[in-house]
């Protein structure tokens, strides 16, 4: 189980990354995260929405209500150029964090 703090911190890059693969709506995004993490990332579904709204407000994603005949109207989110740049930045940061952790975890203990 992944801790709450880490989940919260990774929400932004995860959402941006999912949207980079294609437009999506709230329920589907949650479903995807749960699938990818094998249920290891515990989300309160409702908490996703404030995050989506915040990202939208910051201009990283845009939204659009889409109506189709066979399904309910859904609010689709799409990533913006600004969002892609932010995702790159996040990737760099996460890579840095991972490499720091990797190098620390691979070091042999100097003393017994």
């Amino acid at each position: 189980m992944i801790s709450k703090n880490l989940t919260a911190a990774s929400t932004k890059p995860i959402i941006l990354a999912i949207l980079k693969q294609g437009n999506s709506y709230g329920y589907l995004i949650i479903k995807k995260i749960k699938e990818l993490s094998d249920g290891q990332m515990q989300y309160t579904d409702g908490m996703l929405y404030p995050v989506l709204h915040r990202l939208e407000k910051e201009g990283l994603i845009t939204s659009n209500w889409t109506m189709t005949n066979e399904t309910r109207p859904r609010k689709y989110y799409a990533i913006t150029e600004l969002g892609k740049a932010a995702l790159n930045e996040e990737q760099l940061q996460w890579a840095k964090v991972t490499s720091v952790l990797d190098s620390l975890w691979n070091v042999q203990p100097t003393t017994k």
Partner: peptide
């Protein structure tokens, strides 16, 4: 249950 309490979501939304 998995959607969570309205209060918490609302508070989060307030933050926005």
């Amino acid at each position: 249950a998995s959607f969570g309490e309205s209060d918490k979501v609302a508070r989060e939304e307030y933050w926005n």
